[in-house]
């Protein structure tokens, strides 16, 4: 049973149970720190998100996308999930990602987005106006 712990985003804090055959040929539950293949996949999934997050932050700074696009990714959501949380259609959320439409959004809608993202409305409005900082 391989035990390749991965100290990445606290993954090593859980030892999970897997089923394996012991030396008498019987199945038993074994605690496992995981193995290489799944760690590669876990890490890759997160790296892909971070890469996309960086690209999106740059697009927001350049005025190609609204901050909603950035915070959606930061919360690991996609448009279908975010639309369900704001209670709007997907095409509406897509429109809100255009900076020109975003500027004209009502206070009420902005507040709703901010609450979903766990930030203040001011943080949402002003994101990207200064060069994007490293997000923890």
């Amino acid at each position: 049973m391989p035990q390749d712990a991965l100290p990445f985003k606290d993954k090593d804090k859980i030892k999970k149970v897997v089923y394996a055959v012991d030396n008498k040929g019987h199945y038993t539950e074994v605690q496992s720190a995981g193995w290489e293949a799944e760690h590669v996949a876990t890490q890759q999934a997160w790296e892909a998100i971070e890469e996309e997050l960086k690209e999106t932050a740059e697009k927001v700074a350049k005025g190609e996308l609204s901050p909603i696009a950035y915070f959606m990714l930061k919360k690991l959501m996609d448009i279908s999930i975010l639309a369900r949380y704001v209670g709007k259609w997907q095409w509406q959320v897509k429109r809100h990602m255009k900076p020109s439409v975003f500027k004209k959004l009502q206070q009420k809608t902005l507040d709703k987005y901010a609450a979903i993202f766990g930030i203040t409305t001011l943080e949402l409005l002003h994101f990207g106006q200064t060069p994007p900082r490293e997000q923890p």
């Binding site: 995981g34 193995w35 293949a37 799944e38 590669v40 996949a41 876990t42 999934a45």
Partner: peptide
């Protein structure tokens, strides 16, 4: 990667 995660992780 997604297939591996569904299978193993």
């Amino acid at each position: 990667g997604n297939i591996i995660r569904m299978q193993e992780e």
